[in-house]
Simulated scan of single mutants.
Amino acid sequence: MTSVAMTVNGKAVSGEVEGRTLLVDFLRNDLHLTGTHVGCDTSQCGACVVHVDGDAVKACTMFAVEADGAEVATIEGQASADGTLSVIQQAFQDHHGLQCGFCTPGMVMSAADLLKDNPKPTETEIRDYLEGNICRCTGYHNIIKAIMAASGQEMPAIAAE
Rank of each mutant, 00 (worst) to 15 (best):
M1G: 15
M1L: 15
T2A: 13
T2M: 15
V4Q: 02
V4T: 03
A5I: 12
T7P: 08
T7E: 13
G10K: 12
A12G: 07
G15L: 10
G15P: 02
G15F: 04
E16T: 15
E16H: 04
E16G: 09
E18M: 12
E18C: 05
G19P: 05
R20G: 06
T21Y: 03
L22F: 12
V24Y: 01
V24N: 01
V24R: 07
V24L: 00
D25M: 05
D25W: 05
N29Q: 14
D30V: 11
L31S: 10
H32I: 09
L33N: 02
L33W: 08
T34H: 02
H37N: 04
H37M: 01
C40E: 06
D41W: 09
S43L: 05
S43Q: 10
C45V: 01
C45K: 04
A47Q: 01
A47V: 05
A47P: 01
C48H: 00
V50N: 04
H51D: 09
G54A: 14
V57Q: 04
K58C: 03
A59C: 09
T61R: 12
M62V: 14
M62E: 00
A64N: 07
A64T: 10
V65Y: 06
V65G: 09
V65I: 15
D68H: 14
G69C: 14
G69R: 14
G69T: 14
A70L: 13
V72C: 10
V72R: 04
E76I: 08
E76P: 07
E76C: 11
G77N: 03
G77A: 07
Q78Y: 08
Q78M: 14
A79K: 12
S80A: 15
A81G: 06
D82G: 11
T84C: 10
T84L: 09
L85G: 03
Q89M: 00
Q89L: 09
Q89V: 01
Q90I: 09
A91V: 05
A91M: 02
F92D: 00
H95N: 13
G97R: 07
L98W: 08
L98A: 13
Q99L: 12
Q99H: 10
Q99G: 11
C100H: 05
F102S: 03
F102L: 08
T104K: 02
T104N: 03
P105T: 02
G106K: 03
M109K: 06
D113R: 01
D113F: 11
D113I: 02
L115N: 01
K116M: 00
D117C: 09
K120L: 11
T122K: 02
T124W: 02
E125D: 13
R127Q: 10
R127T: 08
D128E: 14
D128F: 06
Y129V: 12
E131T: 15
E131I: 14
E131K: 11
G132H: 05
I134N: 07
I134M: 12
C135R: 06
R136G: 04
G139Q: 08
Y140M: 15
N142I: 08
I143P: 10
I143T: 05
I144Y: 07
A146S: 15
M148T: 07
M148L: 15
A149K: 08
Q153V: 04
E154W: 00
P156H: 13
P156M: 13
A157D: 14
I158D: 06
I158L: 15
I158P: 07
A159Q: 13
